[in-house]
Design a protein around this nucleic acid. Structure first.
Lengths: 352, 352
DNA sequence: GCCCCTTGTGAAAACGATTACATATTGGGG
DNA sequence: CCCCAATATGTAATCGTTTTCACAAGGGGC
């Protein structure tokens, strides 16, 4: 591999001069500059980023620690992160599937010296794992139970979003409203459950524990839970699934059981994945701007890096919006636009 | 940040000894070893990977260059890559959205010195961009038009998979079979179109250019194309969408137009994303093991790295399998299992 | 008692860049 | 003609590791 020394030798100059030319630092005569540029190009010289970051002590890379997420959520959050990172000249070092404290710590150690900061997403409920991270590098916590302080953190407005949706179900006349929960150790899932309970209490509806079914954020989980709910008597008249994947499973189960949606059963989800509007009937959901979530997390991190952690920590929430489609018996939605423009998207959002 | 020198000073030994202890290289007395370990732990010393890789000239990191993929595909391919990489002690440096030759080259330059090899996915048809990559580092081409040779490459069996599906449509009696294409500059899309034409020719069905509608791999695109096809006369009796997202858009359009599937129109997709089985009716599709695709790409790359490129280049294809569900009027599928086990998945696959 | 091997340790040279400092070489003002 | 500033370049230290080599001490075989 050709190094800066090779270029210097070939051009009969010192490495310092080559460095100056290539980085535009320091004065260099026009002639030398051209010569060196030509030689570097011909020799296909590419600077060794590792070596450079050793001396400059910046890597222009951000670490991302993610749990084993599936599908849309993962890809969108990465999209938002990568776009923002690239705009600021940063790269993304991604590592996924971190179950316990030990694995997270190992991953963090591996990041040392390769990144300037880390976004950690660990929706797992035992936050203490993260509390005493052996880390002095800038850190942003994503969708995790907010530790008291000392860390930047960013979460979804889970509780508020769920309340809005349950309120809506109440407002169109439902009183027997079931929920299909997410996995019990998941922070987002817990918050959505909290929102559900809060909304029912506010509406003066008695709490019915059997209407709280467990789920796991998968289509299959939603399918199974829906069958259980159908077997109950009296049945609920509305099902709120803690995410869209489960809601899709619910729709599938209801269809096969011959239960009409929304006439016999209203169904709502959470996330508003792109497919929601293509379901039959189109699925009402709580819209989460996943891409923005990733983007904002990176912004917070970059801010932390710029201020070398000498800034006041922020705790932010990205807001959610109700999207009412036919599955909750709201007004029938216009057919899906051939090419959804931001325009139509905005019109479709009904914020409460 | 505490370095190996700080630890050495604290322990009254040389850095060499600390290094030996922490890496288990060379002989070290039991006592010194324990002392150093204790001190390193107390001081929260974490080795600087950047510095280490400078001298060892290995980064334990793989670069991944991806186009701006959406949804399931992106997340699954990354999942496969990350799992395999981690199993071999490697990390993933991900960079997305590389449109033209110049952007790819910039990204490749940025990777120099941070990675040991790169997986490049650039389904864009002008392969010449990649031909003379200024790179001597191990490389694997993913889902790209196979350049003559000199590079490892991995692609999906697009053509074969499409032929199988179209053959199936023919075998259940269809002769007016339409296709909704992917974007014209996309390699996978082009291959699927080729497979479609080949299958029709083999079946002795006259080629009807108006049955080839353009699409863009999105639900909205499929929706729009379906409406066009419905307006034709005579209409096709079957629609093959070049991916599942478009097929879902098609189903949505047919539903709203009151066209029954599969009685009045058969619909098939490509990819077999998890949602396919939850559609109404469940969608027949060509199953692509996306996760394996990523895993295999990384395996090829690791092999290239191990042999320092001194190996014979491979050109591999991951195979596709037909999954016939109700949307093509095949035998009615059993209801989706509450929790799909590998077992049931296999039973569901019908390979031709 | 000598030699050699083993074991434990330190000094110093890498790795490939950046950069502070020193050193020429100018040219112009006095 | 001298001096100083500006310009162009080289020298060498530095970043945090690993690793080669040298060396000291101790022990056993002769």
């Amino acid at each position: 591999m050709v190094t800066i020394k090779d270029v210097a030798r070939e051009a009969n100059v010192s490495v310092a001069t080559v460095s100056r030319v290539l980085n535009g630092s320091g004065p260099v005569s026009e002639a030398t500059s051209r010569l060196i540029r030509a030689i570097a190009g011909r020799m296909r010289y590419v600077p060794h980023s590792g070596a450079r970051s050793l001396i400059t002590s910046k890597t222009d890379t951000l670490g991302v620690l993610l749990p084993d997420l599936y599908g849309e959520f993962f890809s969108e959050v990465i999209r938002g992160m990568d776009a923002t990172a690239q705009r600021h000249g940063f790269h993304l070092l991604i590592s996924r599937s971190h179950a316990d404290k030990h694995e997270i710590e190992t991953a963090m150690r591996a990041m040392r010296g390769r990144v300037d900061g880390v976004v950690v997403m660990s929706p797992d409920l035992d936050a203490e794992s993260l509390l005493n991270l052996p880390s002095t590098i800038p850190l942003v916590l994503l969708c995790s139970v907010s530790v008291e302080n000392g860390l930047d953190s960013l979460t979804i407005q889970n509780c508020r979003g769920t309340r809005k949706m349950v309120n809506h179900l109440v407002s169109v006349g439902h009183t027997r409203i079931a929920i299909i929960k997410g996995s019990p150790r998941n922070y987002d899932a817990a918050e959505r459950l909290r929102g559900y309970r809060m909304a029912l209490r506010e509406a003066g509806i008695a709490h019915n524990p059997t209407f709280e079914r467990s789920g796991d954020f998968t289509e299959a989980g939603g399918y199974a839970a829906a069958l259980e709910l159908l077997a109950m008597s009296p049945r609920p008249t509305a099902i709120f699934a803690a995410n869209d994947s489960m809601a899709i499973g619910v729709l599938s189960a209801l269809r096969e059981s011959g239960v009409r949606v929304p006439d016999e059963m209203a169904v709502a989800g959470f996330d508003d994945i792109p497919l929601a509007r293509y379901m039959d009937p189109p699925l009402s959901s709580v819209h989460v701007p996943i891409c923005d979530l990733g983007a904002r997390a990176v912004e917070l991190l970059l801010n932390g890096i710029a201020h070398k952690n000498g800034h006041t920590r922020k705790r932010e929430h990205v807001s959610t919006e109700l999207v009412i489609r036919r599955s909750t018996g709201g007004p029938p939605e216009e057919r899906p636009p051939p090419r959804p423009s931001p325009q139509t998207l905005v019109r479709e959002l009904i914020s409460i």
